[in-house]
Design a protein around this nucleic acid. Structure first.
Lengths: 246, 246
DNA sequence: TCTCTTTTTATTGTATACAAACGTGAATCC
DNA sequence: GGATTCACGTTTGTATACAATAAAAAGAGA
């Protein structure tokens, strides 16, 4: 009765988190992180085998993850048909504009729904949003600003609005779209931080609209926030230049 | 530009144009077609091996296609983590409502952009839209109405608006979202047809708004069209009952 | 007969092997 | 010397084999 006390899960590097089950998800997140943090710069040719080696998995989950990433817009299939090669999606001003516009509309729909929630739920949300926005406000005035913290707060602000009222489909859409804005964020964070105050004010207007139960205003408010975000980003890109859009 | 839409491929045989290259795409379309046409009814347990056998491919492309279909909402991964089982996504009234609302907003953004196009381009589009809508009008009055034809016309109408001005991201989003409405369409087509006239009128308003270059009105118009569509659909579901949402 | 344990089975996740396709470079022929 | 062809290497697409696991079935003990 040789009960294998410890199933020695050899090699594969990652012994701690959850190698059992689906490692494709892990690979997906790892690669996405690489792309978002810029370790895989835009335009890079992706070769499955290399990535697989580097991550310590086989090609199969890497391949799956890549398809996933493609569907979410992180990588592009260049050659069509027989010999499709994948590259990391480039970051361009046009793309940023379109992306932000889309997110604005998705969240706009969420904000609209949220503004129609029952007052009780709305109040609870409002408290949370105010709290988050005050955090942003404080950071905006602070001398040493931590981009990560700011990003987290801002992202939470928007996610909170969505989670309050969006259905599964809309939520899924949002969850798959928003992280892509993170790429632009990180790349140009330093320059965007200066205009944090403006964003805080826009947030206040959103809070007001939701609080008063004005769907139209809430939708418009969030759309404006993203529109202006794109605007700010565009200015920065113009001065710094597009990075890695060769 | 003709929309190929349905290429009734029943035999995966040898003589078909491109078994070479990516058969995953073929499998994807085949399975999606099965789901959309109801050959795989909602709630069905999907087993990769069976599907692979039935389609004459190996599990690998089937697996890839299934992940794709999952991302697009046709199938759901039920069991989480280790043993995720896939089922055909059910059709429910709530889902329809959410889906239609999302499409309405996506297309709303497209319509807004389209309404801001240069007059020359706009006029060309307007002619095409009018033509399509007149086709619908004729069909609405006809005695024997072909659901397929109606669906194609309606879908073309909406796609045309998007393709006129949407960027790659928005277009991709639309292309992956709209087909899901087809499931509801086909399931309840017979009952929806009666209200075709109303939809034609809504289309006319959209055309008017685009023609006059009124972004707000165009966006609202399309949103209304989808909202009312969901409304009509809901009524039908209420009387016929949800099919396969067990 | 009921319940607890053990074995079997069904099905997915992962790794690997193989084949096709495209690009590249060298060698040969005119 | 230039062009053409052929062979090879790199990389993806596909098939299959293997491992792991959850569910089901069978069996044993009370």
């Amino acid at each position: 009765m040789a009960t294998p006390l410890v199933t020695t899960r050899t090699s594969k590097g990652k012994q701690d988190p959850a190698p059992r089950g689906n490692s494709m998800n892990l690979v997906f997140h790892e690669i996405r992180e690489m792309i978002v943090r810029g370790k895989l710069s835009p335009g890079t040719w992706i070769i499955e085998a290399d990535l697989a080696d580097r991550l310590g998995y086989s090609r199969t989950p890497v391949r799956g993850a890549l398809h996933w990433l493609q569907r979410e817009g992180y990588v592009m299939a260049s050659g069509n048909g027989t010999k499709s090669r994948m590259t990391v999606a480039p970051l361009t001003k046009e793309d940023a504009q379109e992306l932000y516009s889309i997110i604005g509309h998705i969240e706009g729909l969420g904000a609209r729904l949220t503004a129609q929630l029952a007052p009780a739920k709305r109040n609870k949300l409002i408290r949370r949003l105010t709290e988050l926005n005050e955090g942003l406000f404080d950071l905006a005035k602070a001398r040493r600003r931590d981009p990560n913290r700011i990003f987290d707060l801002d992202m939470s602000f928007h996610s909170e609005i969505m989670e309050a009222s969006a259905g599964p489909r809309l939520l899924e859409l949002h969850k798959s779209t928003q992280p892509q804005a993170e790429r632009y964020w990180r790349l140009y964070a330093s320059a965007i931080l200066d205009e944090l105050g403006t964003s805080v004010e826009e947030h206040n207007e959103i809070i007001r609209a939701i609080s008063n139960g004005e769907p139209d205003a809430a939708e418009k408010g969030i759309q404006l926030n993203w529109e202006n975000g794109a605007e700010r980003l565009s200015r920065v890109i113009d001065t710094i230049g597009e990075r890695g859009s060769w």
